[in-house]
Design a protein around this nucleic acid. Sequence first.
DNA 1: TTGAAAGCGTTACCAC
DNA 2: GTGGTAACGCTTTCAA
Lengths: 332, 332
Amino acid sequence: MTIYEVAQRVGVSIATVSRALRSGGQVAGETRRRVLEVVEELQFRPSRLGQSLAEGRHAANGIVFPDLSGPYYAEVILGYEEVAAEVGSSVLILATHGRTDPGRKVLDLARRVDGMAIMGRTVSDGVVAQVAATGMPTVLLARLPVGELDTVTTDSEASARELVAHLVAHGYRRFAYLGDPDESSDVTARYDAFRSALVDRGIRPPRAPLRCAFDVPAGQEAARRALAGSPPPQALVCANDEVALGALAAAKQLGRSVPDDVAIVGWDDVMAARYAGLTTVRQPMRELGATAARWLQDRVASSRLPVRREVLRTQLVIRTSCGQHPNEMEVP
Amino acid sequence: MTIYEVAQRVGVSIATVSRALRSGGQVAGETRRRVLEVVEELQFRPSRLGQSLAEGRHAANGIVFPDLSGPYYAEVILGYEEVAAEVGSSVLILATHGRTDPGRKVLDLARRVDGMAIMGRTVSDGVVAQVAATGMPTVLLARLPVGELDTVTTDSEASARELVAHLVAHGYRRFAYLGDPDESSDVTARYDAFRSALVDRGIRPPRAPLRCAFDVPAGQEAARRALAGSPPPQALVCANDEVALGALAAAKQLGRSVPDDVAIVGWDDVMAARYAGLTTVRQPMRELGATAARWLQDRVASSRLPVRREVLRTQLVIRTSCGQHPNEMEVP
DNA sequence: TTGAAAGCGTTACCAC
DNA sequence: GTGGTAACGCTTTCAA
């Protein structure tokens, strides 16, 4: 079922069918009617490949993320997809999680899209540069800028400072940090801001972070180590909520009361954080994805745009894991 | 940068370049070497569009889901993507959530893929049939079969019965059901199984479900209504965890103790369920997605396969919201 | 307003 | 082993 059959059936050329099918086409009303009639009758749908090849564009955008587990990435992707769909773009996803040679996959993806969003520490700067070098409109998410690429991040700096201020106000002085700052630039920023916020207040920051993977079991294990110290830290600042949830479990296991014996805070505000009473930092994930899609659309539409950088606002969410707040507790 | 430039530069025909680039091609070793050299030098990457058009396949699969919020769909998609990537297929996603004319979008997606997975109540049977009618390999997920299409679901029947048995063993007799069974066939199955399990035990099922949207606020509101009844129900069986989490909030708000005054159970086992102590039903989401991708791959590879149906096992996860279990409590 | 034909970038068949 | 070339299915000039 091709445009040729339709043309033949109607008794016109394929050019006319093509024109009748697209909005801007200059076709006589009667001709268009006849074409559409046959199109309907034959259930003809133009081949996307043919169209894309002729138009020289895919009408599709890609997004690369490390993994989808955890609500974090799901939300980003949803925001991305929503905007992309609005502007008529399909969305191709690629999870690099633990795969060998993510670079190859990303380059592969780049051949199927008009623009692409790359999240966090999914691929090396080299690969990113390689993608960008092809002229592919690219936006980086929650990751350090590479070259002159558009980049949108969330404000780790401000929220880390706020978090520290809050904990210090509660009287905590001995801090530990759980999670690997080298895992992503985002987390590096959180860690750095956390340290400098402490220093600014004349509090001695921990010598080093307790590196662990970003999941519940790893957080639990790391927290167990941290709490075994003497004197043990009074507050555990965790790289994300899953680590913090693990820490919560460890505290419980060790019979330490939260927040009386130890405060625990996380990052991301996943749904479980609410039910665990976890103080955390809410990030506008959906907006992160949506921004990427919008910027990409702009770049596809018109090249030669100035580089864009944006840091999205975050919000400190106070719950019970960082200390008692008689009158501000959120009802789950 | 096309295959022509490479061919010219090497001094061979485009056919030879093409052959040198693909694994099966019969090319002299020396020729291939020279081709690859130039390919590397020019950073040539064949156009996916050109390839697909010539090969007659997209090397891409699509997946359609109602929304991505909640870990539920994210997990399905991750399972799907993982398998698809393994077999060399890209993944296109489409969220229909609250959009006008999802049918059009789905049909659109169908033009860009070799196979597609359709989840739950995203589009009408008519649209599904229309997609299938084009010969597109299609598998349905968590949804009633349509025609002769492959379908994979999770076992609502068994888990609903198990759930009821457990609640009855705890002594609960007055039940309410929260959620709209008409929202998806999956939920219809849960509701039907729930009812018949009660009837089988000589317990009178609720006259009707308390219909509400599948999110926390809606669940909270519905639970408030339910608990206002007199006598109030002793157990609230919720269509999914988000509704159940809302119900938990409502109970707290009304000063009802869970599980002493009222038991609450959900479905899906989202991460928050664990921290809320919610008894629920765990479903193999990842496996759901992975199965779809595998089946699709099989169908793309060889047509004329028999229809496949599979019901994946679910697992009842007992926590505290359904009653006291002195020695079986999970440590969060 | 319409048709003919030139792309678009590959793959694969058929000769040589 | 290699080259020529016909698809593949569309969009878009250029003429008429």
